[in-house]
């Protein structure tokens, strides 16, 4: 894949827009790609890292990925610039059953760097806007600087057909911050989106998930209507290497997308 664009989102967080080296590769990818699937991005000599595909199957000229500079591979990847190449394997894993949500309301809850896997679903649904009911997005980060996709947040804010609630943790606000101040679970509870005919897509750090799920239950969401995507460490992505196992599930094959109902059947101590 060739890096067509590189954008800084937040300190240490960068988005690459990647284009395919040839048309057959592009066609093959989009023949298989459904929103929620992931890939292994890499550099020969450095290794591979697993990230979601952060752009939707409704935009078929490129894919995007957004990731934090954290270890050897992500550092080497971020050091590559526009016009240079990286390797990509995928798409792998299962997907969000977006088609089955037609006619329903959709609530997104995301924290920090976990917006990218949710953003592909948001884009996909906004690209097919008339097929869905109300769209609500609750997104928070530690501080204003840590919010990713700031331009898109501004776009979503201006749309009449999306309800966007942004928040930062107490102390993370700036003088001109117009969003909420508070932790995502509390802000979600206050925003109180109706659970009626609604599915929820939740992604965030483990601590956010832990305190958000009880709020969703309180709001009336059934476990089968709450979706999340697990971000386990992976190597092969093909259900062989054993690294992503949680119970009898291969997160890379049986996931990464699970409903809360499915997660209840897996050992939570291994996630």
């Amino acid at each position: 894949m060739s890096i067509a664009e590189a954008r800084d989102e937040a300190p240490g967080v960068r988005t690459f827009r990647l284009t395919f080296t040839d048309e057959p590769a592009r066609a093959r990818f989009f023949g298989q790609y459904r929103v929620g699937m992931f890939g292994l991005y890499g550099l020969p000599g450095e290794g591979e890292s697993t990230f979601c595909v952060a752009s939707p199957p409704t935009r078929t000229e490129y894919i995007e990925c957004t990731f934090r500079r954290a270890g050897r591979v992500t550092t080497a990847l971020q050091d590559r610039g526009v016009g240079e190449s990286i390797t990509f394997r995928g798409p792998y894993g299962n997907s969000f059953p977006v088609d089955a949500w037609r006619g329903r309301n959709v609530l997104f809850v995301a924290g920090g760097i976990a917006l990218p896997p949710v953003r592909s679903v948001i884009w996909n649904i906004l690209d097919r806007r008339p097929e869905f009911g109300d769209v609500t997005i609750v997104y928070g980060a530690r501080a204003v600087a840590d919010l990713v996709y700031k331009h898109e947040l501004a776009d979503w804010q201006q749309r009449g057909d999306v309800r966007l609630v942004t928040t930062v943790d107490p102390g993370g606000e700036t003088a001109d911050w117009k969003g909420q101040v508070g932790f995502v679970p509390a802000v979600l509870e206050q925003a109180a989106p109706s659970a009626g005919n609604c599915v929820a897509v939740v992604c965030g750090p483990p601590v956010m998930i832990k305190f958000t799920l009880p709020v969703l239950s309180k709001l009336g969401f059934a476990a089968g209507d709450i979706y999340t995507t697990l971000e386990n460490r992976m190597k092969c992505g093909l259900g062989k290497c054993g690294r992503c196992n949680v119970g009898s599930a291969y997160v890379c094959k049986d996931g990464p997308v699970f409903t809360l109902e499915q997660l209840h059947r897996l050992p939570s101590g291994d996630m």
Binding site: G45, E46, E48, K235, C236, K240, C241
Partner: peptide, 14 residues
């Protein structure tokens, strides 16, 4: 049968 995947390279090949 669990496995890891690792790269090993010089400046010109790997």
């Amino acid at each position: 049968h669990c496995f890891d995947i690792q790269d090993e390279s010089t400046r010109t090949a790997g």
